[in-house]
Write a protein that binds this DNA or RNA. Sequence first.
DNA 1: ATTGCGTGTCAACAGTTGTTGGCATACGGT
DNA 2: ACCGTATGCCAACAACTGTTGACACGCAAT
Lengths: 193, 193
Amino acid sequence: MTVPAPQTQPRRSDATRAAILRAARERFAADGYERATIRAIAADAQIDPSMVMRYYGSKEGLFAAAAEFDLRLPDLTPVPPEQLGETLVRHFLSRWDGDETLVALLRAASTNPGAAERMRDIFANQLTTAVAAFGTDPTTTARRAGLVASQVLGLAFTRYVVRLPPMVDTTPEDLVSWIAPTLQRYLTGTPGS
Amino acid sequence: MTVPAPQTQPRRSDATRAAILRAARERFAADGYERATIRAIAADAQIDPSMVMRYYGSKEGLFAAAAEFDLRLPDLTPVPPEQLGETLVRHFLSRWDGDETLVALLRAASTNPGAAERMRDIFANQLTTAVAAFGTDPTTTARRAGLVASQVLGLAFTRYVVRLPPMVDTTPEDLVSWIAPTLQRYLTGTPGS
DNA sequence: ATTGCGTGTCAACAGTTGTTGGCATACGGT
DNA sequence: ACCGTATGCCAACAACTGTTGACACGCAAT
C-alpha cells in the first residue's frame, strides 16, 4: 500500500490482455463456448494457455470479459414516433457489422447458462429501458421489448449463426424496409394489427 | 441372405433404441450438442454407452437420428389469404409444445455445423415449399420464407432457449395476436409496410 | 444339446480439456 | 549493481470425452 498510484497506470501486459480478448471473441463467435478451447485462443493470441488463466482466472471469467457488450442504443425520445422501427433496425444492423461480440454471445447463450443470463440482462435492461423512455403504457413495456428482441435476435440468428441464404443475401437496406414496420408495430401498435 | 423377411420384422431391441432416442432428444435439447455426453444419455436410458455406439454408430449419427424433424406444415392453399399469418404462428406454437426436437436442433445449430445445415435444409425446403404453394411472385418466395423463419426462430430462441421472461410469460394466444400480423405481412405484404 | 446371433456389460484406450505449480527472464525502482 | 515484481513458458495433472474390443447371457433354430 506504499502510496499507490491514484489511477491504475497502464501495465506492460495490456497488449497481451487485449490480444487474448480479441482472439477469445473471435473463437467464441466462430465456435461457441465449449468448442472454443483456451488452447486455441492462446494459440491465436500467440501466448501460453496459462497466461489466459492468470489474467482471467478461468474460462468462465474469460468469457465474461469477452462478452462484455453494450447495445449502445441511442436515445429514442427525440426520434419521430413513426421512425422508431427503422431507427432501431438500422442501429442493430450497423452495430453488429464489425463487432462479433454479439454473435459470440448469441452462440454461447444456446449452451452456456451464464451467457444466457447475460443475454437476458442485456435485453431486459438496455432494451427495455430504451423502450420505456418514450412514454407508452408502462404495463406493456416489457412485452413490447420482448417482441422486439424476438425479431431482432431472430434476424441475428438466421443471418449470422445459421446463415440462412435468403437472410444472408438480402441487403441491409432491404432488411430495414421489411423489418422496420414489424418493430414499429411492436413498439407503438396494438395486438391484432 | 437366406430368404430374408420381406418386411423388416420388429427387433427385440426396438425398446432400447427408442429409449436412447428419447434420452438423446432430452439431453440435446437441454444441454446442446457438446454438453450432451453419450454417457449421460446412456445413463438416462439406463443402458451402457457402448450400446449407443452400436446402434447409432457415432455421436453425430445419434444426433442425426434424434434431430429428425418435420415441421408438419399444413397445406396453406385452402387457407383464406388473410389468415395465413395466424395459421402459421398457431401451428408453430402447438408444434413445439410437447416436442423438444426443435429446441434440440436450435441449441445444437449454434455450435454444430451439421445441425446448422439441417436447420437450413428444414427451413429452406419445408417452409419455402409451403410459402411457394400459394401463388405469390416466385422471385420473392425465398425472401418471404427467410423473413418468416427469422421471426419464428427468434420467437423460439427467446422463448425456449434464452427464456426471456416477457416471452415466456406471454400466453400463446397473445403471442398469436402480436406475431400473426408480422408473418402475414412477410407472406403477402410489400416492403416498407 | 448345440450352434449362431442378437443383446447387453465391462474395462480400457487415446485424445482433449481446464487448470496448476515451478522456473526462467526482463523490467523498474533504489 | 541490486532486488522485488511482473511477465512469460514448460511440463504435468486429473478429469472427462468418444470410441473400441473382448466377454457373458439368452433366445431361436437345427
